[in-house]
Design a protein around this nucleic acid. Sequence first.
DNA 1: AGGCCCATGTAATCTGTTACATGATTCC
DNA 2: GGAATCATGTAACAGATTACATGGGCCT
Lengths: 203, 203
Amino acid sequence: MALRHAVLAALLDGELSGYQLAKAFDLGVANFWHALPQQLYAELAKLEREGLVAGRQVVQETRPTKRLFHVTDAGLAELERFASAASKPSFVRDDLLVKVQAADHVDAASLITQVEERAAVAEAKIDLFRRILRKMRGGLNEEEFLRTGRRVGPYLTCLRGLAFEEGNRDWCLRTAAILRERSAATPREGAAPALASPEVARA
Amino acid sequence: MALRHAVLAALLDGELSGYQLAKAFDLGVANFWHALPQQLYAELAKLEREGLVAGRQVVQETRPTKRLFHVTDAGLAELERFASAASKPSFVRDDLLVKVQAADHVDAASLITQVEERAAVAEAKIDLFRRILRKMRGGLNEEEFLRTGRRVGPYLTCLRGLAFEEGNRDWCLRTAAILRERSAATPREGAAPALASPEVARA
DNA sequence: AGGCCCATGTAATCTGTTACATGATTCC
DNA sequence: GGAATCATGTAACAGATTACATGGGCCT
């Protein structure tokens, strides 16, 4: 039941439409949570019914009409309550890690490609996060901003996102290098013998 | 649909019962995935029906009878197929980050406590992962093991887990320090003015 | 003309969590 | 005597993903 609180937290910095929220929760920018548009529209509707957010309609000329949502006092109270309750520990769930776990039993070439692609994605996110951080702290250096800035919450979560993606990139590059070296030293551990096997001999 | 593959990957290093698997997928050791026992028993049953794993009953004297599962050839093929297919990018979903995102609108004291608790949890996991890594590489140093070891998949995923928890600990400690310093500089940003407000004056 | 962006949702399905259920053994 | 460990599940519910649906404006 934390998506609702993630939405409330995201709306603290100003009104957003479902669409804008969806963009923030999708690729990249959502450094503290992730959700698909459908989930967000549904959650906004529920939050509005419960009075935790309120929306106002904005009619646009060239664009479809949209609704901008903001957190109500009741919503703020709910966030406060959530923040004081115990958090459950967070878990890792990553397809790529599952594949690397099975690395010794599985085709190396494809895995190396995927790990390197992930490294590139991480690099792109690193750039993005650096730009966001620079923008948030304005003229100040990081230390100053964190001491005196008005709103440091988003900055702190973005720092975590940055460090996470740096860790991701470094690990991916190292993993790719190791898998490459090993598959060069052991040229296709299962495929080479297979050349002599009946099934392949037939082909 | 990756839990099944995580289970297959976990069974690559030898037979495990549902119970043993559950321990591995619970606190700590599951550095590449997480799942509850119920999910694992259900998934094992499905995998067995589909012929991707096979179990053999082991009757014990003092303990209840258990079933040990291993990956079949069909299961290995399925893992291979999974490993070659595209992975979806992994997402962050963490209660604590949501709370920190809202840090400027929420009680600081409780948040600081929680962040520091998380740092301690991370520290414990770091210790655990270091011990597991030492055990896996045996007498060899890390570089040697990664070049020549027979099974490096689990080692690599554990390295990612280690780096992740180190990043977690560092970020938690820094975040706690910043929040502490700020709440010392701004003694209860909303509470002080409230003392002059009618609602509190009445009390 | 085709594709992307804005903007909003519904419906069906799959996955994950919480609560419940059972029963013997070993450790403190 | 009570708690933890071993060992296995079922049932109900909450949360997340996938597929589908609509429609105008903008860019190439």
